[in-house]
Design a protein around this nucleic acid. Structure first.
Lengths: 291, 291
DNA sequence: CGGGTCTTTGATTAGGTTCAATAAGAGTGG
DNA sequence: CCACTCTTATTGAACCTAATCAAAGACCCG
């Protein structure tokens, strides 16, 4: 059912352990090749280990182009990944080949953690844009915690944070309406862009409606309609992938949409059809049902 | 909206660090007081550390009665819990006090992990039956990994396992129909009971329809109706909390229910109503749409 | 320019929620 | 022990949200 559009055009995933393949130097030169521990801690938003010799650990970067796969399900696990720049998605593939989007890792996010348990990746990671990733071999990850007690807590903390994030997803999928899900998604994106130093008010989506829908447990049509509805009420502006946030607070507290705007048309149309005569009357009040 | 029935009758949660309060000795005597490392590893289904002195680490047990809260949201975190016996639920509480069930920890499960990141528990854990829990102070948890390299991987592994489990939940909530969710829930319960040495074919639910519904992102009515429907088709038997599994394979592969049984009645009723005359005709074939 | 992918929008339908009423247990106290 | 209450479970009917099916427009890239 789901398209695999991105996979179709991808080239073979380069072996993560490899570097300085001279053939793609033109693309690589725009990325760093190594990071030290301090940079890593900043990226992960964990307290840096002041006592640590900066050059004791160096961490290699790898670049991936849009559409490339970083790892696939079942592939032997040995390294974690930290996003230095770029956007990705992680997905689960069900028995029919349908994708279920689990997360959209971006700058400062760690992924690959699901591979620790079974020593094989449980999900697949795909680059949604050109990406610069930092390789964090699992051995190095654990050694880090062992060598520097101050960092040990950070190692567990980062994993715990992922867990809390997933709990939030479960809660959202289990309890919120389509509108509320899309609203929260936009807010969280906005927050992330702010953290990264970009505009929180105007940004481009890096993923398709389909991917958003999969992530939120909705169809692409519902996502598209909801964005249009938000646009009509003036909460946001939408033009294809470009999103402008107009009323963050409303988005944050939104539970469901009022029977206004586009929905009113449908309702009115239905009634008109049933009654077989017109007079749609006054437009409903433009207020939101919120907290 | 949601009731807080359990909390109403609960007594104060005893301080986890406390033991041998003589006043409740009558109830405590049915539980162990200490476990060693080997028992802990068995319980968690991780390879035991053969080289380790069994008495080097001892782990204290605590008992909780039905309805008691083990920890609440926001409470300072310092210990993880391992279920030795009994059944619990972990829940998130939203801004209106509604519960969102996240998991049903049972024998061998670890919980409290979500507290590591912010040093406060992100969820609440409640005993659904009398429980015997093993306290695992986070300090001890990390020390364990540090002291025994063979165990270090196990520590991370247990956390990773939780993450994979939650990914499965997200996937389920995002993609499956109500029937499929209930079916999978029953299968996973059945499997767990089998692991614990109980019957996988006949068991009692420890949670209410409401809690199941919350866990699966459904209403209690839908859960009840779905169970009734499974019963009618002969997949299971239902009598209140008692569930008998009759056709595991069908449950495992079930995607949606055929327009038969109870649903047929609704459909027939609707049509009859529309047409304003009878003749519901033949009953649809009793086959399942499965893999 | 043409073919593919992605997005928007409309019409219809189905699956699940909501509201409501009844029944079945489990405790409690007279 | 039974009546009374409270919680939990079942079932029905109406409604509604979001999925599905369908078509057309926008964008991108070779």
């Amino acid at each position: 059912m789901l398209s695999t559009q991105m996979s179709d055009t991808r080239t073979e995933t380069p072996p993560p352990g490899l570097h300085s393949s001279s053939s793609e130097a033109g693309w690589q030169r725009q990325g760093k090749l190594w990071s030290n521990l301090k940079e890593l801690c900043e990226l992960l938003r964990i307290p840096a280990a002041s006592s640590v010799n900066d050059e004791e650990f160096l961490f290699q970067h790898v670049q991936f182009k849009t559409g490339q796969r970083i790892h696939t399900i079942g592939q032997p696990f040995d390294t974690l990944y930290i996003v230095h720049s770029g956007f990705l998605k992680t997905v689960l593939i069900d028995e029919f080949g349908n994708e279920q989007v689990l997360s959209f890792p971006m700058k400062g996010d760690l992924f690959g953690v699901d591979g620790i348990h079974s020593r094989r990746y449980a999900s697949e990671a795909v680059a949604l844009s050109n990406c610069d990733l930092i390789l964090l071999p699992f051995k190095k990850f654990t050694a880090l915690g062992r060598a520097h007690v101050e960092l040990e807590h950070a190692m567990y903390s980062v994993m715990s944070r992922e867990l809390v994030r997933e709990q939030g997803m479960v809660s959202m999928l289990g309890a919120l309406s389509a509108e509320a899900r899309v609203a929260r998604f936009l807010v969280s994106l906005s927050d992330r862009f702010a953290e990264m130093g970009y505009s929180s008010k105007l940004f481009n989506l890096r993923m398709t409606r389909h991917e958003i829908g999969s992530y939120l447990g909705l169809t692409l049509e519902t996502v598209s309609r909801t964005l249009s509805a938000f646009n009509e009420i003036g909460l946001i502006t939408v033009d294809q992938r470009s999103i402008g946030i107009k009323d963050v607070d409303a988005l944050k507290t939104l539970r469901r949409l009022p029977p206004s705007s586009s929905r009113a048309k449908q309702v009115a149309a239905k009634k008109a059809k049933q009654l077989r005569d017109a007079a749609p009357g006054t437009a409903p009040a433009e207020q939101l049902e919120s907290v």
